[in-house]
Design a binder for these strands. Structure first.
Lengths: 226, 226
DNA sequence: CATAAAAAATGAGTACACTCAACTATTTTG
DNA sequence: CAAAATAGTTGAGTGTACTCATTTTTTATG
């Protein structure tokens, strides 16, 4: 076998990992996070109980492992949707709408997911969450940067703080919705009005400008490096 | 006995509750939240294991019960400190500094506390968290309202969205610090610069104005009612 | 190919949050 | 004041996340 760059050991590990994550995903969605026991996940993936914990330190780590890829893809989807709108405000709102639409498919799971993003217990988890946050901030910031490019914002507009503020506002209201303080229509209203506030008095009339004068974008924020 | 408006039953309950909360507080601070068992709390307060759970549905509820009063008082302390500063920006920064200073005394506990504020499981908890958030938003908003009163912000400045945005930014960075993404100096820097961004271009030169023209402040936000 | 070394899987065992049927203390009623 | 009703306490029992000494599988070595 020439093509097998991986030994049997590595192959088996990869395979088990795949089965465990798939089983966990299915069960979390079917029965909920709390109601799913680690033993059920083990049974469904054909391994012994203890084996699950050699692939994820805790059940919570498993949750992050399971949804990391999916959420990273979600950020890209949200970004693409948002670019179809023409004004910055609508772009940012559309970006968050796409993410909320995803969470709304399974609100109990979204709650647990959000809790885990806000309470990082293990280094493995920190890495994954950090990566996710970095992608999200990066894409959000790009929306702001594009807006400065097309002159909707002034050239010296601080895109990184704006992206952080927009996300912070979104996150606060998402939490309020997931914890039952507000419902979806209220969420939509307050998110839009608070984003409006954030941008109020900062927008330009689009003015033709010289692109070459703007410095390259390389602002990094504390959540963007792994 | 004329003064004992409470029957023996109520007295006993109150007394047990007091002992349980005191024991929980001590143990959470001495050993940490996770390392403290519900049995230890029961032993330290002279009740049986099961009794603890008639006063708090879960260990997490107990945590909120224990720190609710203390955090409400903290908000008032923070508010009073903040009023000693003259500019709005410094006031808001001082307000958050006071809260951070409190959390820094016991960071592991602050982490757990923050997790619980962001993931409300029981109705009892929702009530307490909601109350706390209401107080905090109320005080923050008051700082903004005072700034409009003295003409630092324009009279039509939206204080409620501003208070929410400021809190959201603070909360995001606090989480970043508690989860180990940034250290305290970085936190201070990024919080100040992001608050600066939030207020940039919105401040007035103080101008003498007619106070009677401003409508009374009664803006409520979704986190402020119990 | 046999044997040694290393890595991974196993599952019985442990600790702990929480439950609940039985019990005890208090209040109400006649 | 006794008896009935109500409220509160108890602690043994239950379920489950996670551990770890032992066993099995894979790879490395001569």
């Amino acid at each position: 076998m020439v093509e097998a760059a991986l030994g049997r050991r590595e192959q088996n590990k990869l395979d088990k990992r795949r089965r465990i994550l798939a089983a966990a995903r299915t069960l979390f969605m079917r029965k909920g996070f709390d109601a799913t026991t680690s033993q059920e996940i083990a049974d469904a993936s054909g391994v012994a109980g203890g084996t699950v914990f050699t692939y994820a330190r805790t059940k919570e780590d498993l949750l992050i492992l399971v949804f990391h890829e999916e959420m990273a893809a979600l950020v890209e989807t949200a970004f693409r949707s948002s670019r179809r709108r023409k004004s910055l405000l609508k772009q940012v709102a559309t970006f968050f709408d796409a993410i909320v639409a995803y969470h709304e498919q399974d609100i109990p799971l979204a709650r647990v997911l959000m809790r885990q993003l806000g309470y990082v217990a293990s280094p493995e988890q920190r890495g994954l969450v950090s990566d996710l946050m970095g992608r999200l901030f990066g894409r959000l910031e790009q929306l702001f940067a594009d807006a400065t490019d097309r002159g909707e914002l002034s050239a010296d507009f601080a895109t990184a703080p704006a992206a952080r503020a927009a996300f912070a506002i979104y996150y606060l209201h998402l939490g309020a919705m997931l914890n039952g303080y507000i419902d979806r229509p209220q969420f939509d209203r307050v998110l839009r009005s608070d984003l409006e506030f954030l941008l109020s008095g900062r927008r330009h009339e689009p003015v033709p400008r010289d692109h070459a004068l703007r410095p390259a974008h390389k602002s990094r924020n504390h959540l963007s490096d792994p």
